[in-house]
Design a protein around this nucleic acid. Sequence first.
RNA 1: GCCCGGGUGGCGGAAUUGGUAGACGCGCUGGAUUCAAAAUCCAGUUCUGGCAACAGAGUGCGGGUUCGAUUCCCGCCCCGGGUACCA
Length: 926
Amino acid sequence: MSEKLFFENIKGFIAASFKATPSFGQNLYLCGFKFRILFKKEKMEYNFAEIEPKWQKYWEENKTFKTPDDFSKPKYYILDMFPYPSGAGLHVGHPEGYTATDILSRYKRMRGFNVLHPMGYDAFGLPAEQYAIQTGTHPAITTNKNCDNFRRQIKSIGLSYDWDREINTTDPKYFKWTQWIFKQLYNTWFDEKQQKGRPVSELVVPDEIKEKGEEAVKKYIGEKRLAYYDNAQVWWCDSCKTVCANEEVLTDGSHEKCGNQVVRKNLKQWLLRIPHYGERLLSGLEKLDWPEGVKDMQRNWIGKSTGAEVDFEIEDLEKDLRVYTTRPDTLFGATYMVIAPEHEWVNEITTSDKKDAVETYVKAAALKSDLDRTDLAKEKTGVFTGRYAINPVNNKKIPIWVADYVLMGYGTGAIMAVPAHDTRDFEFAKEFDIPVVCILDPKDVENRDEILKGDACWTEDGEYINSANKETGLDINGLNKVTGIQKTVEWLERKNLGKATVNFKLRDWLFSRQRYWGEPFPVIHWEDGEVTLVEDEDLPLELPDLEEYKPSETGESPLANAKDWLLVTDKNGRKGRRETNTMPQWAGSCWYYLRYIDPLNEDSIFDVKKEQYWMPVDLYIGGAEHAVLHLLYARFWHKVLFDLGVVSTDEPFQKLFNQGMILAFAYETNTGAKVSSDLVEEKEGKYFHTETREELKQIVAKMSKSLKNVVNPDDVIDRYGADSLRLYEMFMGPLDERKPWAENGVKGVFNFLGRAYRFFAESENIVEGTEDKEVAKLLHQTIQKVEFDLEHLKFNTAISALMVFNNLVIKKGKVNKETAETFAKILAPFAPHMAEELWSKYGNSKTLAYESWPAVDESLLKEDSFEYPVSFNGKMRFKIEIALDMPKDEIERAVLADEKAQKWLEGKTVRKFIFVPRKIINVVVG
RNA sequence: GCCCGGGUGGCGGAAUUGGUAGACGCGCUGGAUUCAAAAUCCAGUUCUGGCAACAGAGUGCGGGUUCGAUUCCCGCCCCGGGUACCA
């Protein structure tokens, strides 16, 4: 029996016996003896396990966070990167970003914004399919189960999502529109002149094409479409039985999803012409409020370079070899040419006596994976074709080589090599004893002589030498790089030998996978070779049920086995076959932020007015792992939709912020065996195995099953509650930094919440009357600080400000009701359950989620004096309180006359007196 | 190699960007409460020396600018992320 219960039981007896009702904790005098009632007065214990479910239920039942499309209010769209619902459930890394956005959402609501804050699931993906292959369970079943678990976990954190807007990429009602967007891409071409995507119906087919007939017209249009179907050399993962996009292949040649080595394969694939949007994707970055690092990564990925294409005559061939170079200014230094082994003209260029050597080399290169080619980067290989080209600037004969350091996929697949001024060419030239001709004098550098002799490579700016030819009329001697390039390009264009060109690293996006669990393409391949799209009214094209989810050995997706679904006949009896590839996981996540705007709309992708109101996303928070791909792909789709007039903004995400990864401590023995964290004991900074007593090494690492260091938010909530979880996620450190999870830290914020609750929930502490000056001042400083920090996403310091305030009021022992209510309000975004509980305790019947954020009373913040730190020669020695309106010379007199100053002035003269208002006083003595 | 971040007490981290280095929290030490423990409360806690007042040192390392540098400049070292023959 608890003390309290025991007291309740005997209270009636005491009352009857002594004609007085005792209260819990009172002393009792009985027959002259003092009986202290052993039970102390009950404290307002912080019972999160009772408070939190209660408010979660309240929010759910009252649809507190249902977002109206109220166009009269200012809007704020705050978005999380939606999760892939894995079977493992959430780990504490997920709620980091979710908590941050939730705090801001709650804060913005209190500031009067109509806040759109939705959540959903990016639920297509490999794990559910692999599970289906093993067990025969339909991926939809696994997926729904996982989504249910994610939803339960997310709700238990008290996040204020509008659950009526929940979306799921695997829901046919959702992917109907993913398929619809694919159709738009297919029916769009990119107008280079207007730098804009336009409907294929507006594409003007040149007469000479029309003359060739319908096939030629179709081909012409097909080559312009943003989505096209073609044979593509792709990376094939034999273990996943699927192709992988370039970007899914890691630099060591392994598949990022499974770790197995990938191989080359030639397959019919869907591809998207994202490079057409290279320029727009690049320039669009400028006006975005994104971390510079992410912008840089996207810029690097897009990889724009400006240079020139130059045509070289080939000796004894009626052909010009076209190269791309960023350094047309170095043409005078070109001493050889290189074509890629895959170059179309290799055979033609190669002279008969070199045929064998070249063929052998080309074959060997084809067998090498890109991995090997990069691995052997240190040693350049190549073989002479026997053929020469003519350098247009000086009509000199230079040999043409084949070498695999030149890639077919970039530029023209052929280069002019300038060993004196390009490190790769230099290495190659040294390897094969090709002359190195320096044409750029670096002037003031240590190894200038070496460079001039051609014994070293110089890639920076300088002054041209040996760069003139009377016959051709080009002379750039004495110029520097910028003007040299300019003049050479002008010369090339005038002579019709070349032209300025822009190149992008960005490649066509491989947009199909040989999988079951993805969006089916709304495409039919007919027996006569025609390709048509499924009509809008027949969307969504759903996935067929299968008995077997295994991919076929040929590389076709499991959909090829669904004969009923696969084979179609049109009204004329023509037979067709549906596309068996499915879309990659990126598809659903490329536009989900648009569907939240109007998730239940069955007639269109969304309502135009709603889109105009809600877009763009004001703040998008997620992991840095999506810095390039997801964000680039989504921007690409968005720009196409913008060009087609579907969306009203050119960019989808105005502000982006990356949360840092949450790491965890892991423990290992001397032999490297991992020890589960709950079997570890700390003693004086050392770690021991609780059972074997062995000393362990602490490491910080990503959370993973194999390291036995995964922290599950369910456990944290069980032990400390959702508010503590939320607070700790934010208190750990800056949102964008990586940081290790420490259970003790959770205890710290839990203590804070407990202290705050015990104080603010205790009615005795909440009194009538005007507030204590110090408390009032700090309260308003705290409001200001929290506001500032929230606007700057500095959650950790905002929480620390709340702690500082809490510490003060506990010391003071009492506050007035206004202060208590204000505290509840500013605590609300962070610890909403507890704030609601306090708010209702103060007699409010409505949720405080829409109470207005307290205004800072500037008059309380005014200071009339400042405690200046006084330094001597830059070293702080003592402090002195000085009125803010005191003139400088008076301050100097006061400081120098102060008795504490005498010690530092003794035997010295004051050289300088520095006074910075509200900052510091520094006396320079010597 | 190149491009981005980042190095501050025993630990996580503050310092509103040139002005009191170490806020807040953890841990630790001491005390109160308790039969005892847990919980809670109070005090202390950068390091070195000293009982203390106090003094000296101190923000990865070495220089520099400045009255004053965690903050700016130059040269290094280490850690993390991205990228990789892109002509």
